[in-house]
Computed example of a mutant assay.
Amino acid sequence: MTTTAADTTAGTATDTAADRHAHEHAPRLAFAERVPEFYRAMIRLETAAAKDVDPTLYHLIKIRASQVNRCAFCLDMHTKDALAEGETVERIVQLSAWEESRHFYTERELAALALTEAVTVLTDGFVPDEVYATAAAHFDETELARVIAAIVTINAWNRIGVTTRMTPGHYTPRPS
């Protein structure tokens, strides 16, 4: 934005078209209204996937998969939920570059993040044995199965959100 001396002195700036946010898109489809039984099943899946998974780890998984899948709605929701539950802004910001910011995360979190990316980006090939073995070294079999369930569930939600173009920015976290 360009301001003149008069604008600066007066403490105001002229609003120009370049200063305004882009138009907010509307969702393509009211998914939950069109297939309520499926939506309720997804909620049950989410509840089952979250059972006995550390909430901090669960948020990291959901945020990272949503970043990879470019699901703006899920990013909005899960970053707000994570912040409301005590996650730091710094760890959320660094999550998109977690491999270069390893010192912000525990070894268990790093193993889960690597597994999240491998499962999310199956177009790059199968989940590498090394990634799986690292995760298996940090989680017992039941915990590992729960982490995989969390990854699968957020990927399903991401695909719904991206396909139906759910609009980000309006989600409010529920009180803990």
Rank of each mutant, 00 (worst) to 15 (best):
Y105G: 00
R108Q: 08
E100Y: 09
V131Q: 11
V119F: 10
A118R: 13
V121C: 14
L122Y: 15
S101H: 08
F104V: 08
F126D: 14
A112H: 01
Y132H: 12
L113G: 02
D129A: 11
F126T: 14
Y132L: 12
D124E: 12
T120W: 00
V131T: 15
D124V: 05
V127K: 11
R108K: 12
V119E: 01
A136F: 04
T123N: 15
E107Q: 10
E130A: 15
A136D: 08
W98N: 02
Y132A: 14
A136C: 02
Y132T: 02
V121L: 15
A135I: 07
A114N: 03
L113S: 01
E107D: 09
G125N: 09
E99F: 13
E100P: 10
T120V: 05
E109F: 06
T116N: 02
F126N: 13
W98T: 00
V127Y: 07
A114M: 01
V127E: 06
S101D: 05
R102G: 11
F126Q: 11
T116H: 00
A111P: 13
D129G: 01
T116D: 00
P128M: 09
V131P: 04
F126Y: 07
G125W: 09
L115Y: 06
S101W: 00
A112S: 05
E130M: 12
V127Q: 08
A136K: 07
D124H: 13
E109W: 03
T106D: 06
E100A: 13
L113R: 01
